[in-house]
Design a protein around this nucleic acid. Structure first.
Length: 474
RNA sequence: UGGGGUGUAGCGCAGUUUGGUAGCGCACUAGAUUUGGGAUCUAGGGGCCGCAGGUUCAAGUCCUGUCACCCCAACCA
């Protein structure tokens, strides 16, 4: 029986990339479309994203953010205005050159991100300090022409939210940038059960056009890093480039300070790779489309379905639940819903009718618990939280156990060659040192977590400036 | 952009070496027996063999071209 399970999805420990592809497709999170890097996202995947959206959106709104909708197409001339920005994105934009049969006078690009659109809008709508701060966000799809794609992790078209805010002072803008950075961290921990490594990007890794980029990085099952959300402090460069000016309290003409920040459907890939096991997905209870799957047993027996429907109705108010009434065997259903990552399963059959109980099985530990039907409504939310906590703990233990310290090149070499995971090491801030690790081991700086000048750069031996976490990344 | 691989039923594949009626498993449909860890039997339905040329009496199979997708590197959320 164990063998059969392994037939349907690749072994997580010997072929992780294949396991990932198997699981995201077979669980119904995604389906390949005819265009490379573009995904069909079926109901299960869409429901998961919707649950994530609702939660994130509420958190943004608490910070005073308003949702807006911006166009899909950007005129080339508008895109050209900010030099660093265009340089960063030019290689991966998709161009619209024709309208019907007619060639356009000016090419249009499909947004790879919307800074320039927000700037263009702000330029004609911001006049006074009274118009600030402006805190906008949009839920949108964008296109980046990637060479190599994988569902959710790197796709040509992807879905995300992008926040764009304007502030009077540098200080206030930086506060916003950091508030969002913390928000992403909290969301990952409280909702996705993923512990994050949080910090600042180095010069070479930051967003095109940004002064500072703050990131959250998650450790995947294989020890590789996944950048899961970024918050950028953009200074007032964009304001100047796009002519966003306002009259200050003192009556002077000023350029506001800008932040932008985004988190995407890549988070779904992160959930899959942070929590999954040999049986498939394990979805975080707070966002799982189905939190409790009910598997009735011996459905032909008098009363089983009827009684199951009755208690289903009573728990529907507290959990997202579904009963699998298909004609598949119970064993098939157990395996199927486990593969799809449902956090809790309820088994219910003739045996349970007599005792007024049911068997509750936790997805992450496979622990089986007998629960009185009358207590279900009270117990399920607690058990869901227990699953969440267990998932977080497992991920945190991995993050801690697979993060290593290195003081010099010898130690880095040994770790990079033998230990998957993160390497924490002092760095002098020279780009050459980053390049060296990248070309020799394929590892990049994920983020700066601390300042330090009391030690030596682990790569070149010069005076160190920062403690940096290094890793292979998705 | 380099390196490797694959296109045959909804999915996974065999068949291609040596040209000769289009196959298997899963899924699907109908019926029966089943049901606490991926049930069994019987009977069915489903194909422009990625696409375009060519060779041949005859092409899934040989030749030429082309397109697409997957994996691994380099770029990115």
């Amino acid at each position: 029986m164990e063998k059969k399970k392994l037939d349907s999805i690749a072994d997580i420990n010997t072929d992780f990339p294949q396991w990932y592809t198997d699981v995201v497709v077979k669980s119904g999170l995604v389906s390949y479309s005819g265009v490379k890097g573009c995904m069909y996202i079926p109901p299960y995947g869409t429901a998961l994203w919707e649950n994530m959206k609702v939660n994130l959106d509420a958190r943004f709104k608490k910070l005073g953010v308003e949702n807006v909708t911006m166009p899909l197409l950007i005129p080339e001339s508008l895109f050209q205005k900010e030099k660093d920005h265009i340089k960063g994105f030019a290689p991966e934009v998709a161009w619209v050159t024709h309208g019907g049969e007619e060639k356009l006078a000016e090419r249009l690009l499909i947004r790879p991100t919307s800074e320039v659109l927000f700037c263009d809008y702000f330029a004609s709508h911001i006049h006074s300090y009274r118009d600030l701060p402006k805190k906008f966000n949009q839920w949108a799809n964008i296109v980046r022409w990637e060479k190599n794609t994988r569902p959710f992790l790197r796709t040509t078209e992807f879905f995300w939210q992008e926040g764009h805010t304007l502030h009077e002072t540098k200080n206030e803008a930086m506060k916003m940038t950091l508030a969002i950075h913390k928000l992403y961290c909290d969301f990952a921990r409280e909702v996705l059960a993923i512990p994050m490594l949080a910090g600042k990007k180095t010069e070479s890794e930051k967003f095109a056009g940004a002064v500072d980029t703050f990131t959250i990085e998650a450790m995947m099952h294989d020890g590789k890093a996944l950048q899961a959300g970024t918050s950028h402090f953009l200074g007032n460069g964009f304001s100047k480039a796009f002519g966003i000016k306002y009259q200050s309290r003192a009556g002077k003409e000023q350029y506001p300070f800008y932040t932008s920040w985004g988190a995407s459907t890549r988070l779904i890939g992160g959930i899959v790779m942070a929590h999954g096991d040999e049986n498939g997905l394990i979805l975080p209870p707070h966002v799982a489309p189905i939190q409790v799957i009910i598997v009735p047993i011996q459905t032909q027996k008098e009363g089983v379905l009827k009684a199951a429907k009755k208690f289903k109705k009573s728990i529907e108010r507290v959990v997202r639940t579904h009963m699998d009434e298909t004609e598949n065997s119970p064993g098939w259903k157990f395996a199927e819903w486990e593969m799809r990552g449902v956090p809790i399963r309820i088994e219910y059959g003739p045996r349970d009718i007599e005792n007024q109980t049911c068997v509750v099985v936790l997805r992450n530990t496979r622990e089986k618990i007998s629960v009185n039907i009358a207590d279900l409504k009270k117990e399920l939310p607690k058990l869901l939280q227990r699953v969440h906590d267990g998932m977080y703990e497992r991920a945190l233990n991995r993050l801690n156990e697979m993060t290593y310290d290195a003081k010099n090149m010898n130690e880095i070499t040994t770790l990079a060659n033998t230990k998957p995971g993160f390497i924490r090491a002092p760095w002098c801030s020279a780009e050459g040192c980053e390049d060296k690790l990248k070309s020799e081991f394929g590892i990049t700086s994920r983020c700066i977590i601390n300042d330090t000048n009391e030690t030596k750069c682990a790569i070149c031996g010069e005076q160190s400036k920062y403690i940096v976490v290094w890793a292979r990344a998705y």
